[in-house]
Every structure is written in structure tokens, then in C-alpha cells.
Design a binder for these strands. Structure first.
Lengths: 116, 116
DNA sequence: GGCAAACATCGACGTTTGTCAATGTTTGTG
DNA sequence: CACAAACATTGACAAACGTCGATGTTTGCC
């Protein structure tokens, strides 16, 4: 066996050393990305802030449309995304739809980030 | 002056009460949205995790391409987005480009979320 | 029952995004 | 200097996204 066939696998000068520990699984990454995508929009961040800043922590669509500067269907669209992502709850009373922050929802996603 | 002109502004039965405190300014919302958008992708979350999990907290592109299952230009594209957003640093040695997590960058954005 | 108000849904349109093949650039090596 | 390897950049394309006008649905009120 010639010497050129020795040490065939590892090369200390090469790059590409394997990872030290396991990385985030693909499914978990997709879940977190979906949640973060719901937050990653200026209109939705302001909506969350406006709902939280409102009296009693509750606001209806008509409270949000004018200060946000977007059309009513657009506001409803963003609110639906935030509800589906678990950041807001919707309760309809009379002809109005009131939105509330889900307590701890923002803290929960914030706690996931440093663990990446 | 007829009585119908009294109390013209406020109507207790109506919706649309003004906000209790100031909401997030538009510029601040755009900044945070830009940062969150950099995180809101499964491939980029896994890249951050893989870099952090790697030995010495450092990884080059060739370490990441194969386990991520994406083409090399795509990986470079995602890494550039993470560098521009301030989550990774790039240091080139020889023909390899090594990426590192910026310490505290994830904690900083995590600290902004509960303040919404 | 008819009407108006609040909100959701639909359809359409321009923009942004994620991906890859092809190509360019830089660095070490023979 | 020529060549190969690692990585970045470019161009192209399909899919997803944000926005709005138009329309549908529900509720309270005359």
C-alpha cells in the first residue's frame, strides 16, 4: 500500500469541520419563521403597539385605520394575520370587532430568540 | 342655539376612543420590521443556529451548504442578509469566509419585542 | 322590512422574496 | 503563469406579499 493512500479522510488544513452540536431542526425553523414573519411588517408592529397602548388594552378597527394611514381592508388583513399567529384575539360586540393582545405572546417569541 | 348642537364631539355609545398613550412611531416600526424580516426565514434561522452550534462558534460556507440543502449562491445570499442585519460577522481567511454570531445581537432584538 | 354602519372577503395589481444556473473574483498551489 | 477551489455577484423566474377598490355579511335602528 503506497503512502499516498494514508490519511485519506481528514485534512487539518481544510475547512468544513463538522458541527459541535446539533442545530435547529428544519420543522422548528419553519414554525419560528412563520411566527416572526407575522411580526416582520411595520404596519403590523404599529397595530400591535396601538392595541397595547389603547385604553383597556382593547381597540376596534375604526380606532386603527385612520392613525395607521391604510385602507380598512388592509387593516383587517393585517389584523387577521396577527390573530392567526396568536398575537391578538378578536371579540365581536355589536357591529364592532375588538382586538386585544394575547398576554405573554410577545414574551414567548422573545424567549425563543436567544436559544437559537 | 338649538339643543341639537350640544355635545357635538364625543359620543359615549360610539367606538373609536382615542389611544391612552403614544404608539410606536412609523420610523421605529420600519427599523424593527427590517430586523425581524432578516430573521423571518427558515433557512436563515438554521444558518444562525448552525453557526452558533459549530466548533469555536465559527463556520465557513462549505460547512453550511450541504447540511442546509441549498445551493451555494443561495447560502451566500442568506449570509449576506444576516451580516447586513447585524447578526453575523464575516472574516475572510485564505479562500474561506468564516461567519460568527454577533454577541448579544439576538438578545437585543428579543428585548425589543416585549416593549411593543 | 329597509337602511346605514362596521367589518370581512374577494379579485386584481405592482413589488418583494427565495431560489438556482452561470459567471466573476480572489487566493493558494504546482 | 496556469489552474483549481471557495465564495460573491448577476440575471432570471416563480411564488409570496402588501395594498386597494368593490362587494358581501352582520348588526342596530327607524
Amino acid at each position: 500500500m503506497p503512502a499516498t493512500e494514508l490519511l485519506p479522510v481528514t485534512d487539518v488544513t481544510a475547512c468544513c469541520t463538522p458541527a459541535g452540536r446539533a442545530a435547529m431542526p428544519a420543522g422548528e425553523a419553519e414554525d419560528l419563521a412563520r411566527t416572526l414573519k407575522a411580526l416582520a411588517d411595520p404596519a403590523r408592529l404599529r397595530l400591535l403597539s396601538m392595541v397595547a397602548a389603547h385604553d383597556d388594552g382593547e381597540a376596534c378597527v375604526c380606532d386603527l385605520t385612520e392613525p395607521l394611514g391604510l385602507a380598512q381592508p388592509t387593516v383587517s388583513h393585517h389584523l387577521k394575520i396577527l390573530v392567526d399567529a396568536g398575537f391578538l384575539t378578536r371579540s365581536k360586540r355589536a357591529t364592532w370587532a375588538y382586538y386585544r393582545l394575547v398576554p405573554g405572546s410577545l414574551d414567548r417569541v422573545a424567549g425563543l430568540l436567544p436559544a437559537i
